[in-house]
């Protein structure tokens, strides 16, 4: 974490994923303000995170499709301490991470934003927002859904 060769800029930068042939469409989608998840062309089931085959039926015929970005909170935590992640998250403490059940089916871990911690509740409806956390990285976060 604090290797001597690391610059202050690297130290205080957001934790970066490794962009691979498998997950590149997801990260590219975020830059276009689209939340993409995988759908199986054979059985029609969705899945998240990125895999090389359908975890439901085993087919390798997968496509990236746009999620509605809507869902509800299955569970959540309020992070009070940074452990094993970038020190940059110290600037966010305390903050909520939710396990969001997307309307399409899969669950996704994501930070809650644009709300009070007291708004973060199990079963609360939420919607995605896109946050540019670095010049080359956009992360999906969620906020309470606007009433319809």
């Amino acid at each position: 974490m604090s290797a001597s060769s690391e610059t202050a800029e690297q130290y205080w930068s957001w934790t970066k994923p490794e962009i691979t042939s498998l997950n590149k469409p997801f990260w590219d989608g975020l830059k276009r303000r689209e939340l993409l998840i995988q759908r199986c062309k054979k059985c029609g089931e969705h899945q998240w995170y990125a895999r090389a085959n359908c975890i439901h039926c085993g087919s390798r015929e997968l496509e990236w499709v746009k999620s509605s970005g809507k869902g509800k909170i299955y569970s959540y935590t309020i992070i009070n301490m940074v452990v094993g992640n970038s020190p940059i998250f110290n600037k966010e403490l305390p903050y909520a991470v939710a396990l969001v059940e997307l309307d399409e089916g899969p669950r996704m871990y994501a930070m809650m934003t644009d709300c009070y911690l007291s708004d973060v509740k199990i079963d609360a409806p939420v919607e995605v927002v896109f946050k540019d956390v670095a010049s080359d990285l956009t992360i999906p976060m969620f906020r309470p859904a606007k009433s319809q």
Binding site: W14, T15, K16, P17, E18, N23, Y49, A50, I79, M81, V82, V83, G84, N85, S86, F89, E92, Y95, V97, M108, Y109, A110, M111, V133, L137, I139, P140
Partner: peptide
């Protein structure tokens, strides 16, 4: 790739 950048600890 899918937890730490999303704020998990």
């Amino acid at each position: 790739d899918y937890m730490l950048p999303f704020g998990m600890m």
